[in-house]
Design a protein around this nucleic acid. Structure first.
Length: 280
DNA sequence: AGTTAAACCTGGTTGC
DNA sequence: TGCAACCAGGTTTAAC
């Protein structure tokens, strides 16, 4: 499920309550994408720092009680995959069949629910060491980074020969958009999803970046999108999907021109677009 | 090197 | 009603 807005909504829900929390225990469940990479017992006694986000990854700093030089830091790199969500529970019931990781703290239990188990919880000594550094290394620019200018976006697109939709999804030019927001941003920008990235003009690249930022910002306001199972840290669903212009609307009328929204498959994923409003 | 398939998993929906 | 086929918010890894 989760694209940047859902991950950021999650981060905002847990960051303040968990800042300074003391870890009492960690309970891994069924295997996720990768092994935890440390003994669960080694997390007990650590203190949670400021939860950060990079792309669709969350970083939970976990400081050791004995503050020595270097070896005391580290943290958990978390990813929600396709179907994951995090909840911060004051009184956690016994884990259900799809609860695959618990971080028990004195401020509540942070619980990962992830039916498909494409998500991940991985220990890393720091963001700058493997495995975290390896995973984050391929990520493109943060969409809201002011240093990421329309010109820089256009230059990056010029180097790619794939359809622009596939480039947005790949996340190595700019992170944050998944299948929903890539479709929506392209619609807002009036760009055909099959258009090769290197064929996009400078003005259209600028328009696409603005559309991407606008789409992600609007989704953030609405608490993200909930298609089937996403909820924020308090169990609340997102509302963005209700105002999606094209995503999931194959055969329905385009909200702008009244024409029929089409569904095609690109890079093994469904793409929704309006052939009238979006041009090559 | 750069682009495109295969793989990981479970469950809900659709169609015969 | 039963069951097969297809679909789903992601991204690493392997293969052209």
């Amino acid at each position: 499920m989760p694209e940047l807005p859902e991950v950021e909504v999650t981060r905002r829900g847990i960051a303040a309550p968990l800042r300074g929390a003391r870890v009492l225990a960690a309970r891994p469940g069924k295997p996720l994408r990768w092994p935890l990479g440390c003994a669960a017992e080694s997390l007990a006694g650590r203190t949670v720092g400021d939860v950060a986000r990079r792309g669709k990854y969350l970083w939970l700093p976990l400081q050791a009680a004995t503050a020595g030089p270097g070896a005391a830091s580290g943290g958990l790199l978390m990813h929600l995959g396709m179907s994951g969500s995090l909840a911060l529970l004051q009184e956690a019931p016994a884990p259900g069949p799809h609860d695959h990781f618990d971080l028990v703290t004195d401020r509540g239990t942070l619980r990962l629910n992830d039916p498909r188990r494409f998500g991940a919880v991985v220990w890393s000594d720091s963001l700058h060491d493997a495995p975290a550094a390896t995973l984050l290394q391929r990520l493109g620019a943060e969409p809201f980074d002011p240093a990421f200018t329309p010109l820089a976006f256009h230059a990056a697109l010029q180097r790619r020969h794939s359809p622009v939709k596939a480039v947005l999804l790949a996340g190595d030019v700019v992170v944050g958009a998944g299948n929903i927001y890539a479709c929506e941003a392209l619609f807002q920008a009036g760009i055909h999803p099959a258009l090769r990235a290197d064929r996009i003009s400078r003005p259209r690249a600028a328009r696409l970046l603005a559309a991407l930022r606008g789409t992600l910002a609007r989704a953030l306001e609405l608490g993200g999108s909930t298609l089937r199972d996403f909820t924020d840290a308090h169990g609340v669903s997102g509302e963005f999907q209700a105002e999606a212009a094209v995503y999931g609307r194959a055969g329905l009328a385009c909200r702008a021109c009244g024409g029929s929204v089409r569904r095609v498959v690109q890079a093994q994923r469904s793409t929704y677009f309006c052939p009238t409003c979006q041009r090559r």
